[in-house]
Amino acid sequence: MNKLQNFSKGLIKENPVLVLVLGTCPTLATSTSVLNAVGMGAAATVVLLCSNIVISALRKIIPDKVRIPCYIVLIAGFVTMVQMLVKAFAPALDQSLGIYLPLIVVNCIILGRAEMFANKNTVLDSAIDALGMGAGFTLALVMMATIREVFGNGTFLGFEIPILVDNKISILTMAPGGFFVFGILIALINKFGKHKPKKKDFGCAGCPQAAACGRADCGGCADNKEAEVSAS
């Protein structure tokens, strides 16, 4: 796989949010306005880039058995750094992202990329992968935020849009709107996506937490066996 493909797969083909369905919590929570979405996307991308580079550089040193705790410590360290930077230089963003900034630690995308990509590939490839995945995450967030802000609040990046501002569908900026827009977006991608959509079973293959779970090899969690049978 060449470098360009490695970057672009994160944008569309393996978009972490819309295709792999990782990191749903921050996606739903911070996509109420475009500015928040860009801030969240940038913060997560920085953490992802740093953690992918360091984990890939240390991939021969970290013992296999304790790799997940090691990754979590590294990621938490980078998140703390980003948190302090945002607090110092963009206090308004810190206010609006609130709890979701420290929660980047448990964002499935970051741990998932560490486990699936960074511990098997070179530093350069991991960095490119991180940039692609980060850009894909930001892209999906901005797409959702645009829909929710334009129709729910009648503004775009804070600028009022003439007719829409008088006809707000405010429910879109609230919690139900988040689920709704996300559902519709995924349905559209299933419908118009070039590749055949894989049936999303919520077994270990589709489970964002499989990386940290450790039960993937012994049947996975509870109902996934039956789920697969009933899906097929």
Partner: peptide, 23 residues
């Protein structure tokens, strides 16, 4: 349900309605 809504999308829309009830 329509083919493209099967699986995750319809689940999310159901979640949306459930969340609506909590409003």
């Amino acid at each position: 349900i329509p083919e493209s809504f099967k699986g995750l999308p319809v689940t999310l829309i159901a979640a949306s309605i459930t969340s609506l009830s909590f409003l």
